[in-house]
Simulated scan of single mutants.
Amino acid sequence: MTKKSTKASAKAAPAAEPAPKAEAASAKSTKVAKTQLVEQVAQKTGLTKKQADQAVNAFMEIVVRGVQKGQSVGLPGLGTFSVRETAARTGVRPGTSERIQIPAGKKVAFKAASTLKGALSDPE
């Protein structure tokens, strides 16, 4: 009888395992996806998911357009997006060790607000 109960419990265990793995994976995830962001906006504001999606899209579009124009975009409590100039420099091509000239350009920079930095040290 012990063999049958062992086999039965062994068969039941794999069916129960996927759920904890899924929960563990979502708990360990370090990225908030856009769909999760839309869901949270909908919950906090009482908007429908479609309306929240439109609001999130509009917000992101405004931030991107501001940065494209070379403007700094400040988000109180979060930080500031800005465009920074990069100088021309000499680099090394990986694998061949060939010296190459990297032209000057622009990059997007983000400086976190002090309130966000403070919130990182305080657990919820």
Rank of each mutant, 00 (worst) to 15 (best):
M1N: 08
T2D: 11
T2P: 06
K3V: 13
K4W: 03
S5N: 15
A10I: 15
A10V: 15
A10Q: 11
K11P: 06
A13N: 08
A13M: 11
A16M: 06
E17Y: 13
A19Q: 06
A19M: 07
P20E: 03
P20K: 12
A22Y: 02
A22L: 10
A22P: 06
A24C: 04
A25R: 13
A25V: 07
S26W: 09
A27L: 10
T30V: 10
V32A: 09
T35C: 08
Q36R: 12
Q36E: 15
L37H: 06
V38Q: 06
V38C: 02
V41S: 12
K44S: 14
G46P: 05
L47S: 05
T48I: 09
T48N: 11
D53F: 02
A55I: 10
V56S: 00
N57D: 10
M60A: 07
M60D: 00
E61V: 00
V67R: 01
Q68L: 06
K69L: 06
Q71H: 04
S72P: 04
S72C: 00
V73K: 00
L78Y: 08
L78W: 03
T80V: 08
S82A: 09
V83R: 03
E85P: 03
A87I: 10
A88D: 05
T90N: 13
T90R: 13
G91L: 03
V92S: 02
V92M: 10
V92E: 02
R93D: 13
P94R: 11
G95I: 04
T96Q: 00
R99H: 07
I100P: 12
I100A: 03
Q101R: 13
K106G: 08
K106S: 12
F110W: 09
K111H: 10
A112L: 11
A112W: 09
T115V: 12
G118A: 14
D122M: 14
